[in-house]
Design a protein around this nucleic acid. Structure first.
Lengths: 271, 271
DNA sequence: TAGTGGTCTAGACCACCGT
DNA sequence: CGGTGGTCTAGACCACTAA
């Protein structure tokens, strides 16, 4: 009898033997190195790979907990714990009585701009409008390439965009994307598109932004920026640099934005 | 036979009958209004009340999952789920083999300043030093009173503090606290205290900060602030207003801080 | 060795959703 | 009505910690 291996195979489907420990108590941890992962973490990882591979697309249902339990040969509770974590990370949305759906930047009727933490000082909702100023191919600057795991000089698409908030200039964004992943991205495609860019990236390029790291500073407006944002040169602006990640923690976008914070602020909850 | 009530009593101890549904499947939801809460949410709420009442103090162990299960007359799994949530909210810290402990701003050896999201641009750790400039009694301004659920004019303690980061002025803070909750807070007590203020609040006043809301803006330095922070008048500063909460979402501190972001930035992860 | 949290299972009933 | 996620239980074994 071959030794029982706890770790699941890369495929959850038939074919390969994906049997997992099973039988009563918890799975025994593997002897040697730190090859061990709890079963539910392995399931979570397999599901994430499925999302990344496009097995289920944003807005679609994934199989029910029971189906997945059968496929992966574990109990429903274990699948449940895996999905719980995916739901907490906003990769997936649960809807009682209907199923579990792949999260999307498009589905929620209003919403959109889920990564935009800008709030009106008086608490009123903000109305946004996005205008693309420029869309061109460039070679990756060294610092940006490094943060996106690219080689300096690789081909990228650079956008410049003005966000208008409640009919006044609010944010000037410079956005870098790897050209290889965004073939066909052009000013035409961007023009006349409504809603958040991340919704377009999802629909047109199959790339879903899942998470982002942001670095905030206060800076003085230079002449060019001041002109576009209709503020005075030297006025304080909130500078936000963002690296956005898809599934599997792959960085795919660098963004540098200048925010006017006269009547708005960046909101954050810390704990 | 009296109707079985699902909701737990306010006391988990003996005396009052704290029996919960039990018996096989899930608890039946209550008829009438929206009086229903899942059992584990009720347990979570009872535990939070215990924390707030000081039944277990920061750094101490809380009873084991089995003990709590017996006390509340539910299964260990239900207690577990309640504690899971408390752990995710950093109210409590689990340590395998030892027990579950009340989170504290003091315990972790180094750490401290857990709410300070300031990071050096080059990624190096920052060394901080806190100097109290002023400590006086004031009447609550209307806007601050409103955010702390106080009446305007109530007695408060106001601190002014300079945070030095890597031997250069980094942050100027103005802090307001309800005098009623911080009796005896004086410049003397603050002088010579090392470590984060929230550690002192915890130790001296039994008030643990659990969560905070922050609002960020970019502003220009005025003369007084510029002088203390050793920057030029008009230089851009990151302004952060914070409302900090204890257990049960009770707001207890208002803070307004001006941050120098020449060599540092505010870091945030958004998802 | 005993006690604690960590993982896993199996099976139950519930509330919600669509047909 | 059947299917889906949501809650709850009971009991098992595991890994870690301290006496």
């Amino acid at each position: 009898m071959p030794p029982k291996i706890n770790n699941l195979g890369a495929q959850g489907a038939a074919g390969a033997d994906a049997t997992a420990s099973a039988a009563g108590g918890a799975a025994p941890r593997q002897e040697g190195a730190a090859l061990f992962l709890p079963l539910y973490q392995q399931i979570k990882s397999l599901l994430t790979q499925g999302l990344e591979a496009g097995e289920w697309k944003p807005g679609e249902v994934i199989p029910s907990e029971m189906e997945l339990a059968v496929r992966f040969k574990v109990s429903q509770g274990t699948v449940r714990k895996a999905i719980d974590e995916l739901a907490k990370e906003n990769l997936v949305v649960r809807r009682q009585g209907k199923g579990t759906f792949v999260a999307s930047h498009n589905d929620e009727p209003r919403a959109g701009f889920k990564f935009l933490r800008l709030v009106s000082d008086d608490g009123q909702p903000i109305g946004t409008q996005s205008d693309i100023l420029e869309c061109k191919r460039v070679r990756a600057p060294a610092d940006i390439a490094r943060q996106l795991d690219l080689k300096a000089g690789e081909s990228m698409v650079q956008l410049r965009r003005l966000l208008t908030i409640n009919d006044r200039p609010g944010v000037l964004d410079e956005i870098w994307l790897p050209a290889a992943m965004f073939r066909g991205l052009s000013a035409d495609k961007l023009a006349g598109y409504r809603g958040p860019l991340y919704g377009l990236f999802e629909k047109e390029f199959g790339i879903r932004m899942v998470r982002a790291d942001e670095r905030l500073k206060a800076v003085a407006a230079d002449a060019a920026t001041a002109g576009l944002l209709k503020v005075s040169v030297g006025d304080p602006l909130l500078l936000i640099e963002r690296v956005a990640y898809t599934y599997l923690d792959r960085p795919v976008e660098f963004r540098r934005g200048w925010y006017v914070t006269h009547a708005h602020h960046y909101h954050n909850e810390v704990s």
